[in-house]
Structures are given as structure tokens and as C-alpha cells.
Design a protein around this nucleic acid. Structure first.
Lengths: 366, 366
DNA sequence: TTGTAGGCGTTATCAA
DNA sequence: TTGATAACGCCTACAA
């Protein structure tokens, strides 16, 4: 099958790199008795080739087992460039949906999705971007954007470094940042949904509402803003002790719920930045034999499927993360030179509260 | 920044494709007053270049914002080829661990991990492989292998098609297949762990043990084999009605548990192919007010974190999926031409039963 | 419709 | 240590 390539004697004057050993377009041309250009035309599809010729070429290609070399096309810019997705970890449920959405769009455009993980380390993130620049991706989706330490300077530097090699940076998981309108963002409006959750809990009779997830990242900042606004609208006082930064795991939720309980004038409701955090609060409620939602109302975020399995079922926020991934990929893939406008496009995705018994006085059975 | 590239007048005779517009090695050479070869040597790192010259080159490169073009290197075979991971969906927890492990190894080798999803459609799978062949990956990890319809002919065809372009196929999620020793496999020994689970449930007093997950895929076949062996060792009769093929979601588990209940001589214990299936059985237990584990013993698979949150906590099987990903990636990345042996390497990873109250008569509090 | 040839950005060989 | 050059596999402007 590789005979043609292997047997082809290297020209005497050859000083280039060793051939890959693959069957090349020229091998097919020789076999079919046509010029390389004709073979190229057959496989590009867009030029006109006589049926007879096309058949000959396809036959020869089939015999030799020819497969177009996408790497060569990539160098010429005639193959779709790859799309890169950078995330912190894969184990958060929302991420997988996002990746699936991005993958879908990438593949529909003939591109493919490359995955890179930072493990929460900004230095690794920077190294990844630097390395990916060499691969000339069409774009980079930065899914760590929402939960990384808030650092617009770094984001802007990334965007410019990528733009220099023709790649578009899209920050995923957060709505447009007021102080950086030049950056592409796709994500949930955490401020609005948090505001709505405050109202939801208030209507359930709660007056001391804690926020677990007010860290110094985009999601945390937005949540805090919406939280404050909600309290303000309802005439509730803001208590800094109730707005907490937490890591995103069950244990952190458990710890924070315990800490909250130990304070004077403890909260009776918790808005959690994720369903996992919420599970930690459940643990405390169970261990302390507190009734949910009367003594402990709990709202999560992400609509993880286990939220329906816990007892009582968990109120949460559904976010179409697949859409986030799709939108982000779409922005990254659209050729920016198509339009003269260099205007960044951003998309805010709305979340939806899914009310369940964990926040309702009358525990309705599902 | 792009000045050098843009201003460079195209040679009169040029008929090639339009230049990418990037700063190239030649631009740097011109700026530094050296030959392109020297610049190449500086960035390749392995050749000897005078310190003085190196400095000049790096300075010029920095001024122009030069970034090595990995696509050109890829074509020459001097850049690491990509590693492809094909999966059905992303939403199963074990998959994310696997991907993370593979990503780690890929990046440590200077490669990168491309993700592709089949959505359970074999036709899509085939199309993906065909397309990926063009990108000349170093290898393809097929994570759908364990749960796809059992089809060795197709696997072997994939392996050969990939080998023709220099790529290695590794089947993930299943132990070596007895009838296809020529295929690389990395995965959990489902037979052994299922056998162990049968014994575990037997010791808990159960004599009617159902298997939810005996479908016609590699994992199902192996599970069934281990299930039968376990029953046999314990002198229990095999009842085909108790070995069921199920889809991998909560609802399917629920349905199967209901069906099992409606049979004469129903089972009192369930070995589930995943924790999600197990959750479905929990639903039935809860709805029918059956006590777990006395009337309904339940064992899952995968050690999903929510297994600790349900009540009583779920007995499950922990599998080091990250290791599966790492091993698979390692096999794919190792240059096969290093050794003359074409012998396929396969790795069997052992699972570990994590006993929890859902299968124990005396419900120990964790 | 087909062939010719020059070029994409890089590397390897040979010669200096 | 450095430079000139052909080559990797493909594409496209132009000529035939």
C-alpha cells in the first residue's frame, strides 16, 4: 500500500527532511497518469474535472490507499484550523455540556476541538496558551474565565497574543465584563439569576440569606452584585459575613454551612454557587436534624441530575451550558475578516430557576 | 508587527496560495541579518549556535513577534502529532477522569488532545475516524469501545485504517478481548469485579441477584461472564430473566427495577453497570418503601461522588479511570518504530469494591 | 479541462 | 558555526 511512496527514489540532490512515508498526491497522479494539479482538483471538489478523469484519479487513490494530508493543507490555510478549549478540570458537570456544545459546532465546521487543562494553575494556563499559539488555532475558548482569580490584564494579554496569530479568544462562563468591553464573553448572567434567587427565598419566608460563592472571580463578583441588589430591593441589610467565597466541592459547602450555623443570628437560607456546594449544606442539615426547607432552605446551581435524587429535591438553576459552548465556538469560528468590524461579540445566556422542595415551605412531591 | 510579512513583495513569478500573513522564520532571519537556517537552529534548540548569534536572532524574533509555525512543523513531522479521543458522550463521570488522564499524558509529550463525540452513532464514529485520518494523529483512543455494540470486525478495520496513516488505535474501557488479541485495549476487568460483587452480595444473605448491564457490548459481555462464574461458584442457578441489558441512565434503572419487582420470585439484590442505574433502583425502593439493603441491596459502578450522598450510601466500584486514560495515551504515543515488535500492548486495570450500607445488613454510619 | 511551476514555513544535508 | 538549497505535500495563477 505504501509501495509507491517507499519505492520512489529520492532525488540525488535532496537535502530536505525525510519523507513521511505516506502516499502523496503525486503518487496518485503518477498512478492515474495525470498531473498532481488534477488530483488536487478532484479532492478539493470545487474545480471542474472531467468525469472520466475523476474516475481514474479516484481509482488510483483507492488502489494506493491515499488519504489527503490535512497537515499540509493546514499549513497552507486550506484546512480548518483547530479550536482550543481550555478548562480548569473536567469533573464539573456543567463543563461537559459546554464542551459537547463546542465540539458539535467545531465539527460541523470541519474543525476539531482540542482540550487543555490548567488544574487551576494560572501559570499552566499561560504556558498552554503560549504552546497553542504555535498550532495556529482559529480560536481559544477559555472556560476558566468565570472562576479564575479576576484578572482582566491577563485576559487582555491573552487576547492580543492570540490575535497576533489569527486566533480569537472567547471567555466562557461569564457575561460581558463592564470593565472590559473589548473581550468576547459568553456566559450566564450570574447577577440576574442570583438576584432572582434572593427574591425566591424571600418569598419563602427567609430573611437571613447566605451566599456561598462570592469569590473574587467573574462569577463570584457578578453573584455578589446580584445578591446585594436583591437584598436592597427587599429592604434587607447586607451582612458581609453571609457572603462567602468557597471552593467548589461538597466539603467546602459543608464547612461553610457549619460556620454559618455557629454564628450569632445564623442564616436560614443558602444560595450556593453549585449543586455540589449545596450537597455540603444538605450534610449539615441532615447531621443537625434541621428540616429542609423550613429551617434550612437550599438553592444550588447547575441542575445536576443528582439534585432530583436527594431528599428533599434540590432547587437549582438550569443553564443551557451546551448553548454557551455553541455560542462561544461560533464566535471563535466566524472569520473576523469577513466583516470589517472588529467589534467583539458577547452573549449573555439566561439561567432558569427550577423550584423544588428544598426552598419551598409546602414540600410538593414531584 | 506584521509589517515584515505584509510588506515583503511577492516574487513576480509567484503562483502559490496567498501567504498567511504571519511573521515567518525568514522575516526574522532578514531582521537579524542571518540565514533562515540559523533561525531554525535557534528555535529547534538542538543545533549549536553562537551565543552572539542566538541573541541577535531572539531579539529580532521578539521585535517582530515571531511565533514558530507548528503547522509547518507538523507537515514535516517535526512537531508532535495530536492524540484523538473519541467518546460517545461526555456526561458520564468516569469519562471525564479518563479524558483528564489522557490529556495529561498528551501534553507531557508536547502533543495535544482532540475530542470527538459520536453520540452513540456508529456511523458518526466511522465518519470521525475517516476525518481524523487526514489530520495524521499519533493515535486514537476509542472510549466508546466498552459500551458500543460488540463489533470486532469494525474495530479491526479502524485499527488498520489508522495504522495506514501511522496512527495507533487503543480501545478504552475494556480488558483485552479474547477473540481479538491484536487490538490494543486498556480498561477495567468487568468480569472479575462482577464476580466479586456476586460474592459480596451473597455474603450479605442475598440469593436472587440481578445484573443490570448485560448488554451486547464488551463491558456487558464481560460482566455477564463474571456474573455467571460467580453464581456458579456459589451454587446459585443462572436465571436469564435477571441478567438484563439496560441503557445508562437513571430512568432505565428505575424501569428495570420495576420490571424485576413485577416478576415471580423477584431479586433482592442488584448489580448495576453504573451509579446512575443504581439511582434508578433507589427510586423504586423509595417509592415502594422497601428497606435498603435488607429488601433491596444495590451496588453501583463508578464511585460517583453522589453515591456518598444518597441514603443509605451506595456500595460501588472505584476504578482509577485516570489511569485508564494515561495508559491508553501512553500506548498510543509510544513510537511503534522504536521497537521492531508489532506486538499490541494491553493493560487490565483492577476495580475496587467500596462497600457501603446499600449492600450491608448492618447499616454502618460513615 | 488540464498541465506547469512557484510558493507556503520549516528542516536537513552538504559545503564552506 | 553558518549559509545555500532542496525537499515535505499541497494549492493556485497562469498558460495551453
Amino acid at each position: 500500500m505504501k509501495a509507491a511512496a517507499t519505492d520512489r527514489p529520492r532525488k540525488r540532490g535532496s537535502r530536505g527532511p525525510t519523507p513521511a512515508g505516506d502516499v502523496s498526491l503525486r503518487d496518485v497522479a503518477a498512478q492515474a497518469g495525470v498531473s498532481p494539479a488534477t488530483v488536487s482538483r478532484v479532492f478539493s471538489g470545487n474545480a471542474s474535472v472531467q468525469d472520466e478523469t475523476r474516475r481514474k484519479v479516484l481509482k488510483a487513490a483507492d488502489e494506493l490507499g491515499y488519504v489527503v494530508n490535512g497537515l499540509a493543507k493546514a499549513m497552507l490555510g486550506t484546512a480548518p484550523r483547530i479550536l482550543v478549549l481550555i478548562a480548569s478540570e473536567l469533573n464539573c458537570p456543567e463543563f461537559t455540556e459546554l464542551a459537547a456544545g463546542a465540539e458539535q459546532v467545531a465539527h460541523d465546521n470541519g474543525s476539531c476541538l482540542a482540550l487543555a487543562l490548567t488544574h487551576g494553575d494560572p501559570a499552566v494556563e499561560q504556558a498552554i496558551i503560549e504552546r497553542m499559539r504555535q498550532r495556529r488555532p482559529v480560536g481559544v475558548l477559555l472556560a476558566t474565565a468565570g472562576t479564575n482569580p479576576y484578572n482582566i490584564t491577563a485576559m487582555r494579554a491573552y487576547a492580543e497574543a492570540l490575535k497576533a496569530v489569527g486566533a480569537t479568544l472567547v471567555l466562557c462562563g461569564q457575561t460581558p465584563m463592564a470593565d472590559a468591553p473589548d473581550l468576547h464573553c459568553v456566559g450566564v448572567d450570574r447577577a440576574e439569576i442570583t438576584r432572582a434567587l434572593v427574591h425566591h427565598l424571600y418569598e419563602g419566608g427567609h430573611r437571613r440569606i447566605a451566599l456561598l460563592g462570592a469569590g473574587d472571580h467573574a462569577a463570584g463578583r457578578q453573584s455578589l452584585a446580584g445578591y446585594k441588589q436583591g437584598l436592597n430591593e427587599l429592604g434587607l441589610a447586607f451582612d458581609a459575613n453571609l457572603a462567602r467565597a468557597v471552593r467548589d466541592d461538597v466539603e467546602s459547602g459543608q464547612l461553610e454551612a457549619l460556620l454559618a450555623r455557629s454564628r450569632p443570628n445564623p442564616p436560614s437560607a443558602f444560595i450556593c454557587r453549585s449543586d455540589q456546594i449545596a450537597l455540603g449544606v444538605y450534610r449539615v442539615a441532615r447531621d443537625s436534624r434541621l428540616s429542609i426547607p423550613d429551617q434550612f432552605a437550599i438553592a444550588g446551581f447547575g441542575d445536576s441530575f443528582f439534585g432530583r435524587e436527594v431528599d428533599p429535591a434540590l432547587t437549582t438553576v438550569r443553564v443551557p451550558y451546551a448553548q454557551v459552548g455553541e455560542q462561544a465556538a461560533t464566535i471563535a469560528l466566524q472569520r473576523l475578516d469577513d466583516q470589517d468590524t472588529d467589534a467583539p461579540s458577547s452573549v449573555a445566556i439566561a439561567g432558569e430557576i427550577i423550584p423544588r422542595p428544598s426552598t419551598r415551605a409546602e414540600a410538593v412531591r414531584f
